[in-house]
């Protein structure tokens, strides 16, 4: 029962402070030395920064307590058990589920829906905006899931990573030709947004676990590359989403 004790550790708090510190330093330097104007709503800003610090600390703390140990031990278990079908299903589900919960993606999708509503691409009702943002996130999550499946297949079969990346780039170039201009920016951005706080540790665990349980695979070199795919496929799928929606 000892383990039940809530670990009171300041580490996550310090980490999220450290994440924010460069932003605070750069912004205040520019405010004090260059712009020299009072910041509007300073109180709201400070409250918001406090919220971000609290939120990020709790978020990371919670991930370390629950999701990460379970997810990582499951990733290792699936990597070792040997049933390819289940492994691929798990890989897809892991990519999909972590992406839906990714904070930066939630924020960006919401922002994108506001911009789209302001430009009258979609209805400016709360309902339509939420549907658009959710559609965007499900599209990205689907593409990350598929990317992880592809990445797992690559590790098992030992396909060279650069050919898949080249293929991905070529697909992106072709789809860009046909995509509406309004979606291209969001699509290209979504590639970088998808892979952060939740997705990277769990997906990396799957990749490294898989590479270390396979004969003749080096976890150091073959375990990576999953994130790279997960940054490419969302670009294609969001552009396709834009072609359907706009």
């Amino acid at each position: 029962m000892n383990r039940l004790r809530v670990p009171i550790s300041l580490q996550p708090l310090l980490n999220s402070l450290r994440d924010l510190l460069p932003i605070v330093i750069v912004v205040s330097t520019f405010q004090l030395l260059v712009i020299r104007q009072p910041l509007p709503n300073l109180l709201d800003l400070l409250l918001g920064i406090l919220f971000v610090v609290i939120g990020l600390s709790l978020f990371v703390k919670g991930l370390e307590m629950g999701l990460f140990p379970i997810g990582q031990s499951m990733a290792h278990a699936f990597a070792r058990k040997g049933s390819l079908g289940w492994l691929l299903l798990f890989a897809f589900a892991l990519g999909f589920g972590t992406t839906i919960a990714e904070p930066a993606l939630i924020a960006i999708a919401r922002e994108a829906s506001e911009i789209a509503a302001a430009a009258q691409l979609i209805h400016s009702s709360e309902d339509a905006m939420q549907r658009y943002a959710l559609g965007l996130r499900y599209t990205v999550a689907l593409s990350v899931g598929l990317a992880i499946v592809l990445g797992v297949m690559r590790i098992i079969r030992g396909w060279p990573i650069h050919w898949l990346i080249v293929g991905g780039y070529i697909c992106i170039i072709i789809i860009t030709e046909f995509a509406p201009r309004e979606i291209i920016g969001i699509a290209y951005d979504s590639g970088g947004v998808t892979t952060s706080t939740i997705t990277v540790p769990l997906v990396t665990a799957l990749g490294v676990g898989l590479a270390s349980s396979l004969q003749g695979r080096n976890p150091m070199t073959d375990g990576f590359g999953l994130i790279a795919f997960a940054s490419l496929t969302p670009i294609m799928f969001v552009m396709l989403y834009g072609m359907v929606i706009h």
Binding site: I23, D44, L45, L46, L47, G48, I49, L50, F51, V52, V53, I54, G55, L56, S57, L58, F59, V60, K61, G62, L63, M65, G66, L67, A101, P103, I106, A107
Partner: peptide
């Protein structure tokens, strides 16, 4: 924790970042 943290974080984004 993740749930509460995410809510605070998203609200903080709207207020600050």
């Amino acid at each position: 924790y993740v749930l509460v943290g995410l809510a605070f974080f998203l609200e903080g984004l709207e207020l600050a970042l």
